Simulated scan of single mutants.
Amino acid sequence: MLAIELRDVEFHYPSAPPEHALHIPHWQVDHGQRLFLHGRSGSGKTTLLRLLTGMMLPQQGQIRILGEDIQTMSASQRDSFRARHIGQISQQFYLLPYLSVADNIRLAAVLAKKSSAALDNNIYQLLEKLDMPANLFHQTAGRLSQGQQQRVAIARALINQPLLLFADEPTSALDEDSAAAFIRLLLQNLTPDTTLIMISHDHRQADWFDQSVALQDLTVVREDI
Rank of each mutant, 00 (worst) to 15 (best):
Q88F: 12
H85D: 13
R34M: 05
A102G: 02
D69N: 15
E19Y: 15
T53V: 08
H12C: 13
I4K: 00
Q71S: 15
I70A: 03
A3Y: 03
Q77Y: 09
A75H: 06
L2D: 08
R50F: 04
S80G: 13
L119D: 03
T46S: 09
A16G: 00
R7I: 15
F81I: 12
R84F: 04
H85S: 12
A102V: 14
L95Q: 05
H12S: 15
H38W: 14
I63W: 02
Q88W: 00
H20M: 15
M55W: 00
E128I: 05
M55I: 15
L111G: 00
Q92D: 15
R34D: 00
K45V: 12
K113P: 02
L119W: 11
V9Y: 12
H26C: 08
K45P: 07
L95H: 05
I24P: 05
K45R: 04
P14D: 13
Q60P: 00
R64Q: 11
I105D: 03
R82Q: 02
K45A: 02
G61N: 06
G54R: 02
W27G: 01
Q59H: 14
A117P: 03
P14Y: 07
Q33A: 14
P58Q: 10
A109L: 11
L37I: 06
V9C: 10
G54P: 01
L52V: 06
S115Y: 08
T46Y: 00
I24G: 06
A112G: 01
D30A: 11
E19S: 14
K114V: 04
M56P: 00
D69A: 10
L6G: 03
Q88G: 01
F11R: 14
P17S: 15
L49T: 00
